[in-house]
Design a protein around this nucleic acid. Structure first.
Lengths: 122, 122
DNA sequence: GGTCTAGATAGACAACCTTCGATGGAGGAC
DNA sequence: GTCCTCCATCGAAGGTTGTCTATCTAGACC
């Protein structure tokens, strides 16, 4: 049933529009849990803003000021949450943001009433 | 410096547009941490979808199937994260979603490239 | 006053998370 | 082959979190 990277079709209903099902809440909270650490938020941002939209571990370990195993650990959590993708090229492991993964979360959090008035034009 | 409910102006820069500062990452992760539990996601959704956009504890304790103190505990976390507001009316405590709080998070998660093409028209 | 209800707080306990140093494994250079 | 670099995994320590029961506070009502 998944379209891309495990996302199901229930993704596009804003959280505030109707009571979410327990299963969907669990799935959603799994992704938010991946973002519930300042280091992981920084890693995600660093990867996304890096040239080419991808970065290897060595590129982002020093900026966050943590040990390499810890950074590897956090990156794994982001990958398992479906937010980052990992590609091995030679000795290096390149991480990139999964297309649409953050947009999916953005859609779920969008206020269906206030947002319509303020943003959407077409 | 806060505009509404502790939100600062750095809120509107998408996470993926540029490397986030450590302070902003900490602030952001505090809000995501509030959403990092399935029960809290359900509570938020139940409150938002309840008639009038507000609900008392007794309205939402039974649907989530947890004890009343536990629900109170989760609601407090959501309030402290700036996502819910609490108003005491008589014996009841009414909770409602803080206007713009989720929209703020939605904006931060929006992909500045892919989203521009798909949504914004003006 | 006394009693009932709605909800918050306190304390306890198990589970989980973050971080580290040490180690292991795979690929490239020589 | 040997060495070196990049990165993942392992095991452990310390802190944090989710849940409960028991208790407390504050209104409403008689």
């Amino acid at each position: 049933m998944a379209t891309i990277a495990g996302q199901d079709e229930s993704c596009c209903i804003p959280l505030t529009a109707a009571p979410i099902t327990p299963d969907d809440a669990t799935e959603l909270s799994r992704k938010f849990k991946a973002l519930a650490d300042p280091t992981r938020v920084r890693l995600l941002s660093l990867v996304a803003a890096h040239e080419g939209g991808e970065a290897c571990v060595c590129d982002i370990t020093e900026p966050v000021g943590l040990s390499q195993p810890t950074v590897s650990h956090h990156l794994k959590i982001l990958v398992e949450a479906g937010l980052l993708a990992r590609e091995q090229r030679g000795t290096w492991a390149f991480y990139s943001v999964v297309p649409g993964a953050l947009g999916h979360l953005s859609d779920v959090l969008r206020d269906p009433i206030a947002r319509d008035a303020g943003i959407v034009a077409v």
